[in-house]
């Protein structure tokens, strides 16, 4: 059977999926990136290899996405390296063909994608601030000593959510501390936080966007039923969370790999052996001009595989000429 591998390496999680020719998800792997994208990609590859053992699946195409998409693309030998907006849109419109709005909240970024007739017509990403993304929820859950998995259900128990300023995560936190010291039950505080994050998201990322149903909510934060309920309250629409909401980026990358292969035939996939190779990332500051670019070197078994980070292209070219 032919399989297509999609890898999404984000700031918080790394996801790998394998889909078949009919775009069914055969394998999905969800790992925490923990600041070590290379190791976690190798670990993910090991798990995928384990899972497809004996299933007679041949990997015929690989796509990468997420903030570490270039790095990952070099390591595994990707056929297509795409930004996460396109990947998420492709996956959402595949899973829910008539989708018109995609809400995506990940570890450190959040985006809204508007589609009409299956085509992306508009999108927006959060700007410099990471307020209202997964990392902040993680941090608050840890502070309140609640497992993040129970965060959403606790929010649903609330009868009267407190009002929390959601514009900035620093202010939100001090607001929460204030409310907790005033004696509000933790359920109401958590529900208030969910409302605040949704309000912040709709005011910043979704500012001026025409949100039409069906609405799909995906990304790691979609696991949080509290946030989902807050979205439904704020929008007055049903919000649909797809089965594979947490790996949608990877599914998109796999779908894109599948169509890329149609165009070019053979895959550049380096095989599952990559999980045992020794990849090393080093960096140095180039002193060639006052820009002082930070150049990243990726080497495998001592041989330089790729370089990037420069503005002039000098180091990237060195790689090609050896």
């Amino acid at each position: 059977m032919r399989g297509y591998l999609g890898i999404d390496v984000g700031s918080v999680s790394t996801n790998l999926v394998v889909i078949d020719d009919d775009c069914n998800v055969l394998i999905d792997v969800y790992l925490r990136t923990r600041g070590q994208p290379i190791q976690v990609v190798q670990e993910g590859m090991r798990q995928v290899e384990e899972a497809i053992k004996g299933k007679n699946i041949e990997i015929c195409g690989v796509g990468t996405t997420g903030s570490a998409r270039i790095l990952t693309g070099v390591i595994v030998g990707a056929d297509t390296v795409k930004n996460e907006i396109t990947a998420h849109a492709v996956a959402a419109s595949h899973m829910v063909p008539d989708v018109q709005t995609v809400l995506e909240i990940g570890g450190q970024d959040s985006k809204i994608i508007l589609l009409r007739d299956g085509i992306v017509v508009d999108f927006a990403m959060n700007t410099v601030c990471a307020a209202g993304t997964g990392s902040f929820l993680d941090h608050q859950a840890a502070r309140l000593n609640i497992p993040i998995e129970q965060f959403g259900e606790l929010a649903l128990e609330s009868k009267s959510p407190v009002r929390i300023a959601g514009r900035c995560s620093v202010f939100a936190e001090s607001d929460m501390v204030h409310k907790q010291q005033m004696g509000h039950p933790v359920q109401d505080i958590i529900a208030g936080l969910c409302d605040a994050l949704v309000r912040n998201y709709l005011n910043n990322v979704g500012k001026g966007k025409e949100i039409l149903p069906p609405v799909v909510f995906q990304g790691g934060v979609a696991a949080n039923v509290g946030i989902r309920a807050a979205f439904e309250r704020a929008l007055g629409l049903e919000v649909f969370v797809p089965e594979y909401f947490h790996v949608m980026g990877a599914i998109g990358a796999a779908l894109l790999a599948k169509s890329a292969i149609r165009g070019k035939g053979r895959t550049q996939f380096r095989g599952f052996a990559v999980s045992d190779m020794e990849y090393k990332a080093t960096s140095f500051e180039c002193n060639g001009c006052p820009n002082l670019c930070e150049i990243v070197n990726i080497s495998v078994n001592g041989e330089v595989l790729a370089r990037w980070g420069g503005r002039c292209g000098k180091w990237e070219t060195l790689q090609k000429t050896g």
Partner: peptide
């Protein structure tokens, strides 16, 4: 939006997605 940060990735992601959007359209 441009600012003091030197990270090109944010701009590159948005522009790449934007060009994709138009090509697909």
């Amino acid at each position: 939006t441009i600012d003091e940060h030197t990270g090109e990735v944010g701009v590159a992601t948005r522009v790449e997605a934007f060009v994709d959007l138009i090509r697909r359209k």
